[in-house]
Amino acid sequence: MGQTRSETSLPDAATPPVVVLQGVTKRFASGLEALGGVDLAVARGEFLSLLGPSGCGKSTLLRIVAGLSEPTSGSCELHLGGQSGRAIPAGHIGFVFQDPTLMPWSTVRANVELPFRIARRGRIAGRVRSAERDRVDAALHAVGLGGFEGSYPHQLSGGMRMRVSIARALVTGPELLLLDEPFAALDEITRLALNDDLLRLWEMHRPTILFVTHSVFESVYLSTRIAVMTARPGRIAANLPVGLPQPRNRAVRTAPAYGTMCESVSAALAAAMAQASSS
């Protein structure tokens, strides 16, 4: 376990935010307006959940932060690895998709090594330094997959594949981890286990996490702050700090404060949806 902070772990005001979004809109070529002016700042070390109904542009927002998509208007600035702006060197951002998104023809090890192999550009393909091999081993151990290095994705369960995906996102030691509804396709038992694993990893390495979900319970259990989004075109409707004690564990789920928080987040979500349908 990392440092244990007592009550709310609100980030220090001194360090600049990792992500700053200002008036970000996104209109697709089809005319679909996905985002309608998003203002959001994510502080270093924060676990921020983006909560909203399906199709509210959460994933689009995540892709803009990752630099995989450009906003139609507004600005998205990152402060990572001592660099600022839009062009962040590879490896400072980790991304986990809703599907495990693994290469079926590669072993677990080769899948997790992918970021290093891509970084080896120009050298002989496939050669990975021994230090990097150690980091792959460490990442696989961290997600509980030590001993599965030689397996192929089809030999693993859905939950284990998602763990491989998380290990790949962690292997470069990213300061910013973006997760796009990573557990939505998993069964309840696996999802709860992975929730705890993600919390443990976050407490250990303290990356800044931007976590997209449509589950109120998941967002309350995991995050330090929840940004509630409206239906399309998505905007931030509410910013709710989660004041539950750290580190979180399963006992939190039965605490009265947890229930109260879930209720107020649900109410905020309902309000956000009503606001969108009336406008």
Binding site: F97, D99, M103, L114, R117, I118, A119, A125
Partner: peptide
Amino acid sequence: NLLMLFQLYGASRTQVLLYLRLP
């Protein structure tokens, strides 16, 4: 999504071809 992942890690066209499209 794999294409996006390759893009995120700054893969070249040759790398995308060798590691992703050909397999």
